[in-house]
C-alpha cells in the first residue's frame, strides 16, 4: 500500500514546503528536548566572572555584593552596568527563575528554567549555570 501510493503520488512543488516544515519540527525536537538533570548547585556569571554561587544541598548562597543584593526571601537582584535581573531560588525544586529584568522587550530569560539548561540573559551577559558535582583532577 505504501509503495503503491508513493509510486502514484508524484513529487510536487508544494511538497517542498511540507517537507521543510517536517524537517524543522523534527530538528526542533532534537534540539529542545532535554533531560532534566539533578542540580547540586548553581553559579551566576556576569561577562564570564562568577558573582554568585549556591548549593541546593545545604541551601547556602555566596555572592559578590558589588553585583548581587538580597532583596527578599530567596530573592536576589543581580546588577551590572548593562541592567538588572531579579532571580528567585526555588530550593524545593533545585531551580532558579528570573522573575524580573530590564533586558529588553522579549525578556527571554524569564521563560527559562535551570532544570532545562543554562539560563542566559544575553543583553546583560548573564549566565546562570547548573552545577553538577565537579570532577576531581587526578594525575598518575
Amino acid at each position: 500500500m505504501l509503495t503503491e501510493n508513493l509510486k502514484k503520488a508524484p513529487f510536487r512543488k508544494g511538497d517542498i514546503i511540507v517537507y521543510l516544515v517536517l524537517a524543522v519540527a523534527v530538528l526542533a525536537l532534537f534540539l529542545t528536548a532535554g533531560v532534566s538533570k539533578k542540580s547540586l548547585g548553581f553559579t551566576a556569571e556576569l561577562s564570564g566572572n562568577r558573582v554568585m554561587e549556591g548549593d541546593f544541598e545545604d541551601k547556602s548562597v555566596n555572592f559578590d555584593s558589588r553585583y548581587v543584593q538580597k532583596i527578599g526571601e530567596d530573592v536576589y537582584k543581580i546588577t551590572s552596568e548593562k541592567g538588572y535581573n531579579v532571580i528567585f531560588i526555588d530550593w524545593q525544586n533545585n531551580d532558579i527563575k528570573v522573575t524580573e529584568t530590564d533586558c529588553g522587550t522579549s525578556k527571554e530569560c524569564t521563560f527559562m528554567s535551570l532544570k532545562s539548561g543554562d539560563i542566559i540573559c544575553a543583553p546583560h551577559s548573564l549566565i546562570i549555570r547548573s552545577l553538577e558535582r565537579e570532577p576531581i583532577p587526578i594525575v598518575g
Partner: peptide, 13 residues
C-alpha cells in the same frame, strides 16, 4: 496517498 507519502518522508528524516 497524502498521509503515506508524508509519513514516509518523516520517518526517513
Amino acid at each position: 496517498k497524502l498521509i503515506y507519502k508524508r509519513l514516509s518522508i518523516l520517518l526517513i528524516l
